[in-house]
Design a protein around this nucleic acid. Structure first.
Length: 672
DNA sequence: GTTAGGG
DNA sequence: CCCTAAC
């Protein structure tokens, strides 16, 4: 075997050849397998079926009592939970086992360590202070039949000494289910309620200070696609994300307002219906008229993104054969645990306050404005599961999709009057955010910070630290957020509650109202019929502002271009080394050999790098840019390149080219 | 899933 | 780096 022979390729001596594996080209290649897709059922259909059924059945029940019932259910349930360990407080997946809303998944519960959970419901003492607890199902329901809003506020007030930022996570859902409802449905709804509710022991007590609890009108949404019309889009979103201001007159309707807003900005629409109809053949779905209107975001870009995710899922699965444990919602993963800093920086709104970029920086006496973010809408997710998959499997799949999005890294952006506030060090005052000014124009955005989904195949490999605490043991599709990108909250473990709102169901209808004319175009643009659903992409406000109307930088989507990670000299060397040995055309092997642990370097990257190296080596040094690569390496690049060009690495397991410089020293030896 | 190349 | 065709 030639492989064992030592070949002298240069003056530098031998290099023990490595026995390369047969080139992939001659390795067996399985026939195309591509039907998984065919065999898979659109998860939506499944979900839709459930939802549709639910709705259908509920069409005959009265909703008014639902409202009340909800609250009660919620409360009772919650009460039981209160006092339990935080783990117990954590979301229970079971909580949403019932009635799934295809449209969105909500993670109703919240588990915040050591936090105070405030469940506002009618009757909640709002007096002792200025806190304004708005919304509330009961209030709302009384005023608006059929609407039930349960808001949960998580008051994170760490001894007033800290920022006392409180994030109120409200999961408001409205049941606009018509008339009556079967017992079953009630139960379902009840479940939602329960899930959504988390209660409170000491309602306002904790807020008993000068803090003003701002109504959580804030809603942050990750739009699936970018709105072609910048301004419009922005406005849309921002408006929805405004901070609630205490308003006694309206306190009871906070939720309603909120929901309305949310609806208003759903891009959606008609196309959505169409799409749904197409996608979901389910009779149930059809049976659920209300659902019809649910919007489905869909764009080719989004789909792409999705596929990207999916790819990852697959990849992960492949490497982590171990069953993916259903993630326990209980761990802080999805808990609405906002890092203090993060929350304070991006979520809280303090009227008059000094610098507050640092936790604990505040004076206790500062008055705070607390506002809650009712929910973060989870971008549309698209999952596919075989018809034969188990429900559990479906759940897991959805969970993974969600996790991929949330876990991929999100950061919060603050937008004020259409402008993104980037300077994190500025105080709210400096940034122009004060209660007296334009809270209405204040908005928050969720931006994906995961620039790439790491194709990491080595689960064991440790991920970047900035991930959530629970990250370690989680192999779920979570990509290490790129640190650089994560500037804002890199060290924070922020978890956005997924919220699945019943709200969405109802929204559907309301949504249909031609909210933003601008939506139209969008809809029109949506053509893809494929069932992909996808994670939405957050809008890049900045881009919006600047991009011309047609601009549709696909990049702005979720599928952001990975951050550039220039190869270091060391990497180049490793690459050269590997290629010298393995030859070109075997990038996967090169990857394994030299970049096994570099999750961010895919074999494609290596291939590309090699390509550029060859180019670089071919051009005059003056024309080269970037970190200079030692000429020596470039020489080796050329040598190896020419060598392997002559000896197709594919033909036989070739020998490595050992010596730099003198490449063709003895090519013939390689034969055989 | 990999490769090879164009973009 | 991305995207894709081709394998």
């Amino acid at each position: 075997m030639v492989s064992k022979k030592k070949l002298d390729y240069g003056f530098n001596g031998y290099r023990s050849p490595i026995i390369p594996r047969a080139p992939r080209s001659i390795r067996r290649r399985g026939p195309c397998k591509k039907l998984e897709e065919d065999n898979k059922l659109c998860a939506f259909e499944l979900l839709a079926a459930v939802a549709g059924k639910l709705l259908k059945e509920s069409e005959s029940s009265a909703s008014s009592n639902i409202a009340e019932g909800n609250v009660q259910l919620g409360i009772s349930e919650d009460i039981n939970n209160v006092g339990q360990s935080k783990d117990d407080n954590a979301l229970k997946s079971e909580s949403y086992d019932h009635g799934s809303c295809a449209e969105s998944a909500f993670i109703p519960e919240i588990s915040v360590q050591e936090q105070n959970l405030l469940f506002n419901f009618k009757g909640l003492p709002e007096a002792d202070n200025d806190s304004v607890l708005e919304h509330n199902s009961l209030h709302a329901s009384s005023g608006f039949l059929k609407k039930v809003d349960c808001d949960i506020k998580l008051g994170i007030s760490e001894e007033k000494s800290t920022i006392g930022s409180s994030v109120c996570v409200g999961n408001s859902f409205k049941n606009e289910l018509p008339e009556t409802q079967s017992e079953d449905d009630k139960n379902k709804i009840g479940d939602f309620s329960m899930a959504n509710t988390y209660t409170v022991k000491d309602p306002v007590g904790e807020c008993d200070n000068t803090n003003v609890m701002i109504n959580s009108e804030s809603s942050v949404q990750l739009p699936l696609y970018r709105d072609p019309i910048p301004g419009a889009s922005l406005r849309k979103h921002w408006n929805n994300v405004k901070l609630g201001i205490r308003d006694d007159d309206e306190k009871s309707f906070g939720c309603n307002k909120f929901s309305t807003k949310i609806r208003s900005f759903k891009p959606q629409s008609r196309i959505g219906h169409r799409r749904v109809r197409k996608m979901v053949a389910s009779k149930y779905w059809k049976a659920g008229p209300k659902l019809k209107d649910c919007e489905l975001y869909n764009t080719s870009d989004g789909m792409k993104t999705f596929y990207r995710y999916r790819k990852n899922f697959y990849a992960r699965e492949r490497y982590q054969r171990a069953p993916i444990k259903k993630r326990k919602l209980s761990d802080h993963s999805f808990a609405v645990a906002y890092d203090q800093e993060a929350s304070s920086d991006s979520i809280s709104n303090l009227p008059e306050k000094g610098p507050r970029t640092v936790k604990g920086h505040q004076k206790a006496k500062d008055s705070h404005v607390q506002f809650s973010i009712k929910s973060f809408k989870v971008p549309e997710l698209y999952v596919e599961v075989p018809e034969t998959a188990t429900v559990s499997s479906l759940k897991r799949t959805v969970m993974e999709a969600v996790t991929a999005i949330l876990g991929g890294g999100l950061r919060v952006g603050v937008v004020l009057q259409g402008k993104k506030i980037r300077d994190d060090s500025r105080t709210l005052q400096q940034a122009g955010i004060s209660q007296s000014s334009n809270l209405d124009s204040l908005g928050f955005t969720l931006e994906p910070s995961f620039t790439h989904v790491s194709p990491s195949k080595t689960p064991k490999k440790q991920k970047l630290p900035l991930l959530l605490p629970c990250d370690a043991d989680q192999q779920l599709p979570r990509s290490p957020a790129t640190p650089m990108i994560d500037s804002g909250i890199s060290n924070a473990s922020i978890e956005f509650p997924l919220a699945t709102k019943l709200d969405d169901f109802n929204d559907c209808k309301i949504i249909s109202s031609p909210k933003t004319p601008i939506d139209a175009p969008i809809d029109g643009a949506v053509v893809s019929d494929s069932k992909a659903l996808v994670p939405v992409s957050p809008i890049d406000t900045e881009a919006h502002a600047v991009v011309p109307v047609n601009s549709k930088t696909k990049r702005s989507e979720l599928s952001q271009r990975r951050t550039r990670r220039p190869f270091s000299v060391g990497e180049v060397e490793a690459l050269v080394e590997a290629v010298e040995t393995l030859g070109t055309g075997r990038w996967r092997d090169v990857k394994m050999r030299a970049f096994e642990n570099a999750d961010h370097r895919t074999y494609v990257d290596l291939k590309d790098k090699w390509k550029t190296l060859v180019h670089t080596a071919s051009i005059a040094p003056q024309q080269r840019r970037g970190e200079p690569v030692p000429q020596e390496l470039l020489d080796r690049v050329l040598s190896a390149h020419s060598y392997w060009s002559l000896h197709q690495s594919k033909q036989h397991g070739k020998l490595p080219i050992a010596a730099p410089k003198i490449v063709d020293a003895r090519e013939e030896i390689v034969g055989v």
